[in-house]
């Protein structure tokens, strides 16, 4: 399935990006696993998704990106759990907006933290004891963990930024750049 942009993550960050892109006339697909907690305890995420849907955005609700086809530093497509291997979501560029731990944009075990869709480079403390502060109300280091991006918010995988994968929202490591969606429209409008 071809789109002008594929956004992975249907929370606050993903929906905002989708709104801006679709306003610019782009055909957008959002893969949204579960609801987002951005606005806790409210139906806002669903309302936002419904509004986007009415504007022609394709929302894959309850679906999860499970694989990415990457060649020569470019993302060529992603596959999802629900659509299966027979359907590849393709677009000139992709936005990673899957959030942090709660929304499973980042996964973790006792020693590691990783990003499951692209295997992006994640910035986090080497030792688990450095992930938290003993004081609950102090700033918690893990709240700053996330994927590493370059100055154009391109996502690093294996030390190299992928050309057409941008990140935005909670998944971006503290201090790293988040995607400028308006700039993306300028860069990608008219391509294809």
């Amino acid at each position: 399935m071809r789109f002008d942009a594929v956004i992975i993550g249907g929370g606050y960050a993903g929906c905002t990006a989708a709104g801006i892109l679709s306003d610019a006339g782009m055909k957008v697909c959002v893969v949204s696993e579960g609801l987002s907690l951005s606005v806790s305890g409210s139906k806002t995420p669903y309302a936002a998704q419904s509004a986007l849907q009415k504007r022609g955005v394709t929302i894959l609700r309850g679906d999860r990106a499970v694989g990415a086809k990457v060649e020569d530093g470019r993302v060529l497509g992603i596959t999802t759990r629900n659509l299966g291997p027979g359907t590849m979501l393709e677009a000139p560029f992709y936005i990673l907006a899957t959030g942090k731990f709660f929304s499973r944009g980042l996964l973790s075990d006792k020693e590691h933290i990783w990003e499951p869709v692209f295997g992006a480079d994640v910035e986090y403390g080497a030792d688990r004891t450095s992930w938290f502060d003993e004081d609950f109300s102090a700033p918690q280091p893990f709240m700053g963990f996330g994927v590493k991006t370059d100055s154009s918010a391109r996502v690093y995988v294996g030390g190299k930024a992928l050309e057409n994968l941008f990140a935005t929202g909670d998944i971006v490591a503290k201090g790293c750049k988040e995607a400028n969606v308006t700039k993306l429209i300028e860069d990608y409008a008219g391509r294809e």
């Binding site: 907690l37 942090k100 731990f101 709660f102 499973r104 973790s108 992930w131 938290f132 918690q140 893990f142 709240m143």
Partner: peptide, 8 residues
Amino acid sequence: LREAEYMQ
């Protein structure tokens, strides 16, 4: 850790 982010 997911719960902790939520809690925060």
